[in-house]
Design a binder for these strands. Sequence first.
RNA 1: GCGGAUGUAGCUCAGUUGGCAGAGCACCUGGUUGUGGCCCAGGGGGUCGUGGGUUCAACCCCCAUCAUUCGCCCCA
Length: 434
Amino acid sequence: MTALQTIKGFADLFEPESTLFTRMEDAARRVFGAYGYKELRTPILEFTELFARSIGTETDVVQKEMYTFPDRKGRSLTMRPEATAGIVRAYIESGLHGRENVSKLFSFGPMFRYERPQKGRMRQFHQLDCECLGAHEPQADTEVVLMLMAFLRELGLKDLAVDLNSLGCRECRPAYKETLTAFLSSLDTGQFCEDCRRRLSTNPLRVLDCKVPGCKAMTENAPRILDHVCGDCKEHFDTVVRLLDTQGVPYTLNPRLVRGLDYYVRTTFEVVSTSIGAQGSVAGGGRYDGLIAQLGGPEVPAIGFACGMERLALLLAQQEHGNEARPDFYIACLDERAPDVAVVAAEALRANGLVGEISFTAKGLKGQMRRASTLGARYCLLLGENELNTQTVAVKNMDGGGQVSIPLATLGDWAEIRHADKEQAHRPGAGPAI
RNA sequence: GCGGAUGUAGCUCAGUUGGCAGAGCACCUGGUUGUGGCCCAGGGGGUCGUGGGUUCAACCCCCAUCAUUCGCCCCA
């Protein structure tokens, strides 16, 4: 029998990733909750039509990256490739728009895209998602960016850059598109890379986003969308930027920043890290005023963002390398009767706030000490023949201190003192407890 | 979908021109050490990713395939 393995691009999350994910979710609830956002959980499966209509039939995501299959009655279902469509569907279907003017929702969970896996990109990946539905005001845009930054700060992440741009609206973007196309066509198009020559006709805005140095140089003097948006869009964007200034948020105006999904308009932003390779984009979002109506809902504006949890986990992991928490104790069993006693003793220690484990089997002391050492335990509790006969436990300080003998009956008191020490030690530092 | 790299012990990886399968860490046993984590000696562990081919002989060369990984495309 050959052993089974995970599906390509689907990962089992062990420590420390599993803990990092939990911490991100906790931080999200705290920070987003502070801005009045409520948690929403939508299904992983939706009718395929939802994504076709929202993301855009012509996009790569819909054309070749979705997990799509018929159910038992032949209806086409798709495992969600992103979160916004499902949230908007739920928003419309629940009639939430009729009960409140502005709805603020956040969500997190697995998404699915059939892509070639690489660093920070899985076929099953996870996103944190925030949507502010019903607000057209530029203050909503600013607050969403501020909230995203507050969330990343809460996680202790540094060295992140915010890129900002406006994509114009349905009124002014077509005109800019023409201006841009005219400019690009006037260049020596043969010098563009293969992809850009294709983009020229399919999606000229994407040419600005090309990473090939040659293409970048050629589009250096391309007309900037910010100089071509209509008065309303300009005013909207100016307000967003001015408010970010007052809050001291560092950002870069990036005229090349465009979005992959069709429904974005006006403000668009991205948070980038320079330290995780090619997949440096950690979060991205923007305004999508037309989407809700496009999906059969009311004419309601909205703005939101999605945050890639795998990429955040990469950043957190490299930032916290070597900061693993130490267990407080390890109980070494040196006698066959010891494991029984160890279970009870460990419970007494944990009841007083300590963290640690025991050896289930009795083995030689040398191996036990090695085990305690590799675990990084602060104290190694020895249960040998002598200790069992005298109803005591030998407690050895693994950090070079001495060793004391403690009656089993008073182990709880000892643990209480050690726990108090630990609390004291954690007070000044900002490190996570446990 | 396209391109590069890598698959050898539980883990990290060496392996010369094609000539008996290796090290470190981990694990087990023994010795030593003041109650011991260091040190010393020994031991268990391998379909060399898989399937073909070339050869007297393949971890090594060739073909195929699977997997992992870094990029491209696309996206968070």
